[in-house]
Amino acid sequence: MKTLRSQSMIALAAVSLSGVAVRTAPCGAQSVNSVTAAAASTSAHPSTQAKPFTIGIDDVLNINIWHEAELSRNVSVRPDGKISLPLIGELQASGKTPMELQEDIRTSISRYLTAPQVTVIVTEIHSLHVNVLGQVTRPGSYALSSSMGVLDALSLAGGLREFAKKNGIYVLRSNNDGVKSHIPYRYSEILRSKTMAKDLMLEPGDTVVIP
């Protein structure tokens, strides 16, 4: 079985966004300082550049509009992937980079303010995890590492229990609108393939269910 890589998706975010500091918050969430929309880094080798960090459900954002204290605030991304702000109303946040969300806010609020200066900072990351439920030794929530597949998650959870229905395993995945899809997982077929290339790669917020 492929060994889990030591770097997490948070580390990838730190590579792709300059000036990012990651630490463990007291509540168990991971905190990111200075994940500003203007901080996207460049690489001399584009083919090896890490995927930019994207905002996810339950992440906490600091929205700052310069000289507009009443409009600036901390917001959590709702289960439907949206946030609510004064004057603007609802905006899609999940699936966007801080830079993209910053530009959306700036464009929307320009109807009310002249040349607004907006920054978006991700202060807490709650979306970079996966859940493993059902017939495993240690069901629970686990940090999502880069290139982490279902077999990796099952290994973290201590493996399948004796009466687990191996070919009944499935993954629940939410899209950016919060709608969940049901993805069947053919456990025996993956094991017979003798290659991790065919394993189903997990995404933030996925839930692996073992009946």
Rank of each mutant, 00 (worst) to 15 (best):
T24P: 07
I183N: 02
V130R: 04
F163K: 14
C27R: 15
Q92E: 05
T207S: 06
S76K: 13
Y142W: 10
V150A: 09
Y187S: 01
G149P: 00
S145F: 10
S76P: 12
I83L: 02
L151V: 08
I169C: 02
L12C: 11
S174A: 14
P26H: 10
Q7N: 15
I88P: 07
H129G: 01
L133Y: 12
A153Y: 08
G178L: 01
D206G: 05
S34V: 10
V136G: 06
L151C: 06
T3Q: 14
S127N: 05
A39N: 11
A153F: 09
I210R: 00
G140M: 04
N131H: 03
A164E: 07
Q49K: 10
T48I: 15
P26E: 12
E162K: 14
R111G: 15
T137N: 15
A29C: 13
V35G: 02
T3A: 15
S47C: 09
N175L: 11
L101T: 06
S147E: 11
N175K: 07
S94I: 09
L85R: 08
I10E: 08
T107C: 03
A37N: 00
A14R: 12
S110N: 00
S41F: 00
T137D: 13
L91I: 02
G56C: 03
M201K: 15
S31R: 04
P98V: 06
K198L: 03
S146V: 15
V136W: 00
M201N: 06
N131G: 13
T3E: 15
G19C: 03
Q117P: 06
L113F: 11
N62A: 15
L71P: 07
I83T: 02
L12V: 14
A164T: 08
R161V: 08
G56P: 07
I121N: 15
I210D: 00
I125L: 00
S47T: 12
P98T: 06
D206V: 00
S41Y: 05
L151E: 10
C27Y: 12
M1P: 08
S76C: 13
K180R: 13
P116E: 04
S155K: 11
F163E: 04
